[in-house]
């Protein structure tokens, strides 16, 4: 089953009153259960592609379909609910809510879905166990290490059992060993839950975990490797 389709996606940014083309006809398909990785030099448009797939940025032209939904046609309200239910996000800087504990950060997407308190507790505890954070569940982000923070972020992204997880440089702020452990965790989730992952990275270690590597250069996919 095809989960993500980008077809002839174009995107310009206006910078200092001049149009700067960033995506110049991106074509891409992701099948459900896949793990894929976007690589390319800084500024090549990796984050932009991920944002468009994630419904937090918009193409100027082309077709964007995720889980059979035409994202270009959705309103903000619908799109927010879609992101909450169908997608998970992992960021380079973890982006946890600083005033919430590890437990509460992971719980948050379920609160948005109005899942009952008991059910939430059960699922969050299980997730804390799965990402190995049960011991620090009541700690706030500033009391956690980088690796632990990214585990919280993974827990938060996966707690809703999303169809697709979008991770933009998930190891960008972690040392090599911690990064590897994080990738192991996501690989495990991919295998167990069949969750689809798409990464953007500069790090060959990350791409070593994915079967597909898409090379982005100057706003277009120029090469694809499949293992």
């Amino acid at each position: 089953m095809i989960l993500v389709t980008l077809q002839d996606v174009y995107k310009d940014y206006i910078m200092a009153k001049t149009r700067v083309p960033v995506l110049k006809g991106v074509n891409l398909q992701l099948a459900a259960g896949e793990m894929a990785c976007l690589m390319g030099p800084s500024g090549s448009g990796k984050t932009t592609v991920l944002n468009i797939i994630g419904g937090i940025d918009f193409a100027d032209r082309g077709r964007v379909s995720v889980y059979n939904q035409d994202l270009q046609a959705m309103g903000d309200k619908q799109l927010s609910a879609f992101r909450n239910k169908t997608l998970g996000f992992i960021f380079q800087y973890f982006n946890l809510i600083p005033v919430l504990t590890a437990f509460e950060n992971i719980e948050y997407p379920l609160v948005l879905q109005r899942v009952g308190k008991k059910e939430r507790r059960r699922r969050v505890e299980a997730m804390l166990e799965a990402v190995g954070l049960s011991a620090v569940k009541n700690h706030r982000p500033d009391e956690l290490s980088g690796g632990q923070r990214q585990r919280v972020a993974i827990g938060r992204a996966l707690i809703t059992r999303p169809k697709l997880v979008i991770a933009d440089e998930p190891t960008g702020n972690l040392d090599h060993r911690t990064g590897k452990a994080i990738m192991e965790l996501m690989k495990e989730m991919n295998e167990k839950e069949k969750t689809t992952f798409i990464f953007a990275t500069h790090d060959p270690m990350v791409s070593s975990y994915t079967r597909r590597v898409l090379h982005l250069l100057d706003g277009a996919i120029v090469k694809e490797e499949k293992a």
Partner: peptide, 16 residues
Amino acid sequence: TREIGTLRAIGTQKTG
């Protein structure tokens, strides 16, 4: 700012 972006990305509505 970034926190608002995060909250929105993970599905918080504007009204939220």
